[in-house]
Structure formats: C-alpha cells, structure tokens
Nucleic acid binder design. Sequence first.
DNA 1: GCTGGCACTCGTCAGTCCGGAGTGCCAGAG
DNA 2: CTCTGGCACTCCGGACTGACGAGTGCCAGC
Lengths: 340, 340
Amino acid sequence: MVEDRKLAVLRAIVEDYVATEEPVGSKALVERHGLGVSPATVRNDMAALEEEGFITQPHTSAGRVPTDKGYRLFVDRLTTVKPMSVAEKRAIATLLDGAVDLDDVVQRSVRLLSQLTRQVAVMQYPTLSASTVRHVELVALTPTRLLVVLILSTGRVEQRLVEVETPVGDEDLARLRSGLLHAAVGARLPDAANALHALDPGPDGPASATTAAVVIALVEAMSDHRSEERVVVGGTANLARYGDSFDTAVRPLLEALEEHVVLLKLLGEATGGGTVTVRIGHEGPYQELASTSVVATGYGPSEHALATLGIVGPTRMDYPGTMAAVRAVARYVSRILDEA
Amino acid sequence: MVEDRKLAVLRAIVEDYVATEEPVGSKALVERHGLGVSPATVRNDMAALEEEGFITQPHTSAGRVPTDKGYRLFVDRLTTVKPMSVAEKRAIATLLDGAVDLDDVVQRSVRLLSQLTRQVAVMQYPTLSASTVRHVELVALTPTRLLVVLILSTGRVEQRLVEVETPVGDEDLARLRSGLLHAAVGARLPDAANALHALDPGPDGPASATTAAVVIALVEAMSDHRSEERVVVGGTANLARYGDSFDTAVRPLLEALEEHVVLLKLLGEATGGGTVTVRIGHEGPYQELASTSVVATGYGPSEHALATLGIVGPTRMDYPGTMAAVRAVARYVSRILDEA
DNA sequence: GCTGGCACTCGTCAGTCCGGAGTGCCAGAG
DNA sequence: CTCTGGCACTCCGGACTGACGAGTGCCAGC
C-alpha cells in the first residue's frame, strides 16, 4: 500500500519534471495529480525516495528531481505502453512507403524519427554481415582492369576495381564469373567469404593470380567495415532545445555525433523482437554523455536484427512516448526492408 | 592620408573585435596597434566610419563593432593574403594523400577544413554534370533483369536495375553494350546523354524497347539530382563556441545544415581559379542566417570547378585565415582528384 | 588637422533585500 | 502505525541600488 503510493509519487515526479523542466514540490504534486493525500504525506514519501536514491534535490528547499536510478525504475516498472495514435501510424506508413531505395529509406526514417520524438535520431545502415549475396558480377574495363560488383539482399551495391598482372581473356572471365556465382550467391556474407576462399584456383599460373586478386577484392568488399559503420544522423536542430548546459551537454554530444564509431558504441547491440533498449545517463559507455540517454532498438527483416536505430536525448525526456516512436519506426522499416 | 588612416582604424577594429569578441574602444585601439595618433583622433575617425555605416555601437558609450558592410570592406580591400605555414601545408598534404577513394577524400577534406578553421565545414560531392563518362557496363542478372553500371571520371559509380519485357540474348547485349560505349565514353555527361538519346534503336521490335529502357536508366543515373545534391558536413561541434545567441544563430544554422538543398544554395555557385567567395551576414539568401557568413570556393581538376566546398561561421570570424584555409584545401583536393 | 581635457552616458558588477516555494519535524488524530 | 496540519527554517531568484569605469562627443588651443 505504502510502497504503491511511493511508486505513484515517483511516477508523478518524473512526469511533471519532464513536462515542466522544473524541480517539483510536494504541493504542486498533490494538486496536479489526484493522489488523495496531503502534501505532508507526500513529503514523507519523498524523503524515503530520496533516501533510496531515486530522486534528489538540486539545493536545500527546492523541489525534487529524478536521478538516473529514478528514471530507470520509472522505465522498468512504471511505464504503461503508450500506443501510437492512428494518425501517427498513418503518417509513418505513408512517409516511409514513398521511399525509392535503401538510401531513401534510411534518410526518411531518420527524419521521421527525429520529428516524432523531437530528439536527435540515429540510424545505422543495415549491417553487411547479416545480409546475403544476391549477385556477383565481373566486368573487364580493360584487359588488366576488372570491376568487381557485389549486390546484396539489402539492395546495397559494393564495387571494387582490381588491377591484374596478366590480361584476362573472355573465356577466363566467364569461367571465373560462374565460379564466383556458384560459390557466393544466396549465402550469408561470412559463409560466402569462406566459400570464396575455398574456390579452387586451378593450376598455378596467371589465371590463378587473377582469381586470387578478385577473391581478395570481393572478400574485402564483404567485410568492409566502413560500410558497417555507416550511420545517419538527423534532427540535430533539436539540440537547440537543450537550452542551458551548452558546454556540458551539447558539445560532447555534437562531437559524438560526428564520430560514427562512437555513435555505434552508444547505440549498443541490436536487440530484435520489438525490445527497445533504454540507456540512461551514466549507464552509457561515455562519461561526458552522463546527462544524455539513448533509446534504441534493432531492425531488419523478420526476427533477425540487421542493425540499430534510435534516438539520443537528455535524460529528462518523455520515455514512454519516445520508446513507442522508436519501436513503431523500427517495425515499419523492417516491414519495408522485408518487402524489398 | 586621412582616408588611409580611417581604413587602418577599421582594419584594427575588425581584427581586435574578431580576437576579443568585445566592442573595441578608441583607447585600447591606439595602445594595441601602433597608429601614431591620440585616442581623440581615432574617435573622430570612428565617428566618420559610423556615419558611413561601417561600424556601430551596441549601446551608447560602448566600443564599436563592425557591421556587415564593415566586414565587406575589410575583406575586399584590407585583407592581406595570409599564406599557410609550411607545417599546415604538410599536414594538409599528408592527411589528404592517405585517402583511399572518393568518399574518403570528401570525408577527410571536411574534417580537415573544420579543424583548420574551427568552423563548420561543408563540401559538395563532385557534380555529375561536369565529369565525363569513363565506362558503361551492362550485366544480365537474369534474362529480363539488367544491371546498368555507369563509371565516371571522378571515380563515382552509379548503378541502376532495369527490368525489361522480353528476355535479352547475349548477342543483343553485346551489341547494345558496344553501342553505349561508343556513344558515351569520354563525353561530358550532358553530351553523353544527348548522344545516348540519339542512339539508333534499330528496327522496331523487342530489342528496341530494351535499348530505350536502358538508355532511360542511364540518362536518369547521369542526371540524378540526389547525387548532385549530396553534401557532407563536419565540425558541427564548433557551433558550441557560438556561446550566446543560441536560438537566434545556432538553431537556424543546424536546421540549414540538415537541409542539403538549402546548404547548396548557401554555398552558392562554384567559383574556380582560386577565387574564394565570401558572403557576409545578410548578403546571403536566408534572413534567419543573418549573423552567419559563408566562405566558399569551387574545386575540381584543372580550371573547371566541379563542385563547391567551404565553411559556415559567425560573421565575426577570422576572414583572412579562413579564406586561406579554404583555398588551400580546395587546391589540394583538386590536385588529388586530378591524379585519380 | 591633431590633441588634451572635460563633462556626460550607460552597462556591469557587487551587494542587499524580500518574497515565495519548499522542506523537515513534531504533536495530535484516526 | 499512518496520516495530517502547523510551524520554523532554508535558500533561490528577482528587483533594486550605487559605485565604478570604459567610452564617447565636443571644444578650445596648438
């Protein structure tokens, strides 16, 4: 009973603080939420909550503010799922359905997510390693210069130029091409890479060297980390709403947003199946970002999470709404990638 | 004589204000710069300069601050070319020489530029229309599904999938390929597009429809505006140095940086031949950005400007240094693209 | 045409003061 | 044991003030 009320108080504090951006006191609390007790009672509960580390006072005789721990409890136990409105769902669907290719899907998703949450949105490109090979093509630009093209199930196309020592004839090329196709098409990237390495290079000789060079280029394209690290950011203008705390919060965040490796670490491991990960303040890997939270989830066709998308914002944010938006966008993006 | 001193005073005001970020008074001026006259004399000059609209006072009895018009005069007539130091030149060269492909060149250039100038750097991808066709390739993924690959002199590769009604045979494909190559290779994009359109589709029939579809895809790839509009931004963390004026300056700028179309308009037309364009405050196309300046120049192999790069920053900036940095980076990037 | 001097203007800063919001604690009532 | 009303206390924030100093404009004199 008492425990229940304490939790209700915590929830009320979080909600009010998120809405008003000001420390919330006992009186305002009983007025604005219908808890049927007096301010004095609430004060006692608050003292207990502070004792347990869920809330804190900026200074003596100010209202209370949730701590990271408080937000954590709120997110874990006090959040009721807030479904998206029909209008929002329709907006998401129509906006994303208009996308023409992978780049466009990513671009639109980021914009959408930043608008829905009014936070900075971050989205990782579909990870190469989880996709399969749709096609491999070899083109002789000149007799000693080959263009290797790799087409993936995600619609991504990678190409590499390969210079070879000895001119390659048409029959050699055709043989190599069919070998590559046979080995790689339909396989997941890591498997395809293995299969390629195992390709019989034939008897020693010039053709063998060519095969080796092409295979190397292909494998490199498959494991190209720069593509895996590709991240798109949107809605940075929302940072302007941070208002105070420019140097302590906005600057490190801007720096992080430019370092894609850092960003990826921030987003964390992709979690599939509709689970949204929330990382609050100091829980993240970077001390400088102690006042920012990350709300992220995995996306990708079917169960398999291909990559991560989410938002970065102040710890003081509307977690239920943000989580719902992130989940909804991830779901729609997954569906679209599935169809393509 | 008197005119000369007035200009010297203006220059001193601009330099001091840029350095200190504080309105500069007559006394400080004579002390810090070796103009051999008394403060009173300087005050008279200042009054005249203010009359002419080059400087202004934030409030009565404060120091003077340059107006946009004052900066303009400073940039046009008072700027002595400040050459890059040897160390800086070497840093630029070594950093950019390590780039492995076009994406990397752009990425590194932006980072470099933002570090050199401590401003937000912006760089447009090489414009398609100014480059030439290096190679065209046709690949039949399936009999009715063709991959069209377009390789440009800038190293850019565009590809399109084309679905055709009737299966395409190998000989048809070879004939079409050689026709395309003949028409397009070596030509500038607009010319190539024209040549393609003029391709004789042969007698009416299934092959003709295929040709038409492929040509359409190629021309579309050539004039793909999304590629022309691609812009990379770096160094946004430098925005944190704006300090005050968050809503009035930083927010509109962040918004502009996300809208690539807006950004391109901001950069303006590419100017070749080492000419650096400076747009100060209200001279730009957007009122919201009245307190920001743009320093930009064209880059590209030889004389021909392919695209634009530059920086965006507060009107209160070190114009000579920034202009030198922009020019230097553009020059090195051009050289690298020339070699490739 | 330059300079020194002088009166004047104003923004800034430190200090002071006051109101209000909020707290903790305590005694008393269910 | 739990809740409540009351009370004294704390402390932030805004408003106000006065001294200070940087800077100006103007004028008379060289």
